[in-house]
Nucleic acid binder design. Structure first.
Lengths: 115, 115
DNA sequence: TTGATACTCAGGTATTGACCTGAGTATCAA
DNA sequence: TTGATACTCAGGTCAATACCTGAGTATCAA
């Protein structure tokens, strides 16, 4: 339970930064090395590296080192979890709308009866 | 452009805290006052109020004050935006998988040809 | 073997975040 | 009108975040 919540904390936190979202987007077109990912971003390589660490800690990205190159790719699960949490909230919220619709329809029917 | 990114920053940041996610969940069963929302959370009312401010700033929640009571409800759009961003990333990522599948199938066909 | 590459680690600073307390203000009920 | 309710505002602390610089350590290419 608490573990699932902490995972969501980390995933949403990871997604709350534009640099990190850009990395997810970059990795959408295939795996890449840390240098290749860092290249478009105007910041010290070490700063960028910390962003990657946040992404890895969140489970959104996984990486493997071969020689001196670390290659990163997206790990789907964390993204799925985040999307499903949002989807669940939207379902509940839409149900409320439906209930309201039903209630309003019923009210209207009564109005019609009263006429 | 940058505005859209900042909006996503705020939405994902808002969702990165368990108290705030709980509020979204609570509001899924209908509008509620600040006190009612604060009640289940063991923290100073003022602290909770700051969480609500984050939710409002993100556009996830809207509220209206009538008399001394502020009533809050979910505003769907921000949640939709967040979900769609994730969905778009997943689509791109799955396309990569599909491309890899095609590539691997082609490789295999060549192997078969070579036999 | 030497130099360049690709990270990796340690530490420093400035801002933001998550909580708190204390002191308002406005509204409503009696 | 008086007291309780429902916030609201100001400020303070402490930890976490987002950046930085400087100094490693491997690995690979020549």
């Amino acid at each position: 339970m608490a573990e699932y919540q902490q995972k969501l904390d980390r995933v949403f936190h990871a997604l709350s930064d534009p640099t990190r979202r850009a990395v997810i987007q970059q990795l959408g077109s295939g795996p890449a090395s840390v240098s290749a990912l860092a290249d478009p971003h105007k910041m010290a390589f070490q700063s960028f590296s910390q962003h990657l660490k946040v992404l890895e800690d969140s489970g959104l990205v996984i990486s493997e080192k071969e020689g001196r190159v670390r290659t990163c790719k997206i790990a789907g699960d964390a993204l799925v979890n985040a999307q499903e949490w949002i989807a669940a909230q939207r379902r509940r919220w839409n149900e409320q709308f439906d209930l309201l619709d039903i209630y309003l329809s019923e009210l209207q029917e009564k109005d019609v009866d009263d006429e």
